[in-house]
Every structure is written in C-alpha cells, then in structure tokens.
C-alpha cells in the first residue's frame, strides 16, 4: 500500500480510440506494484477504463487525475465536452448517445456510467451543458 498519497495525471486523447486504455493499464500496474489487494485493483481498473472510454466517446478527450492514498483511490475525469443534460437518464442502463464508431468497438451501449457506479464505492457527476463534465470516483482500500 502507498504510505503517502501518490498523484498521477493523464491526458486522454479524444481522437484516438486505439490508445484508449493506456492510462487504465498504467494505473493497474502501479496498484499492483504498491501491493494493493486484487479486488480493489479490479474495481479501480474497470472504473478507470470505462471512464477513459467515456471521456473519449462523449468528452472528446480530457484528463484523468488519480490520487492513491493508504485509505482510498480517487479517480477524477474532467472533459470539456458537451456536458450531460439529464444525469439521471444518463445513469440508466441502456441509455446512450454514443456514436456508431464507439459501438463498433464494443462500447456505447449505455453501460459505462452504470459500470463505473457499480465498481466504485462512491461516484459523483458534475456537468454543465456546453462546458463539460467532471466525474469523481472513490474506491476504498480498507
């Protein structure tokens, strides 16, 4: 486990589906090196990966900031995309505004945000239409 807080920053390219997942891959490796227990790594990896995909599909790119402390993993995605007009609706399984390109990759079926909520211990979404979205997820380590 991390003895003090480790902060990691990633830029997520909104135009490149091919590299999607690199930040999540890196986080998974760091958590393994820190000796975090496997179930927490799994939860963080899935939450982070879905967030990364969402930031590309909907946010047109953005950034991820991850803070790993002895008690928690905090993952914050920020984008300058179109924002979410109805967050409750966006949280429903099956609701999606994704493009055909995202669907061809096996995403965009309205499972991203529900999966992120399912695998994190808490999740908050702040969004302003026309300005962007910030999603904060916390995974507890004890």
């Amino acid at each position: 486990m991390a003895e003090k807080t480790i902060n990691l920053h990633y830029t997520i390219d909104g135009n490149n589906f091919t590299t999607a997942g690199q930040a999540s891959s890196n986080i998974k490796k760091v958590l393994k090196q820190l000796g975090v227990y496997p179930e927490a790594i799994r939860k963080a990896a899935i939450s982070m990966y879905e967030g990364e995909i969402n930031t590309i599909i909907h946010g047109k790119g953005g950034e991820a900031n991850v803070a790993i402390s002895p008690e928690t993993i905090t993952i914050v995605f920020t984008d300058n995309g179109p924002g979410i007009s109805d967050i409750d609706k966006a949280m429903q399984e099956g609701f999606s505004t994704a493009t055909d390109e995202a669907r061809e990759l096996g995403f965009g079926a309205g499972m991203g945000l529900p999966n992120m909520k399912k695998y994190s211990d808490s999740m908050t979404i702040e969004s302003q239409v026309g300005k962007g979205t910030t999603v904060t997820m916390i995974i507890k380590l004890n």
Binding site: G21, S25, K28, R42, A45, I53, L105, G106, F107
Partner: peptide, 17 residues
Amino acid sequence: LTGLVNPQVIRTCEMMD
C-alpha cells in the same frame, strides 16, 4: 469468445485478467 477484433478487446481482457 468474441467477433470483435480491435485493441479494446485486449484492453478489456487486461482489466479483467
């Protein structure tokens, strides 16, 4: 088992072990 052949299949597998 899947019919998709893009890099995200491999990334998904990585996340899920």
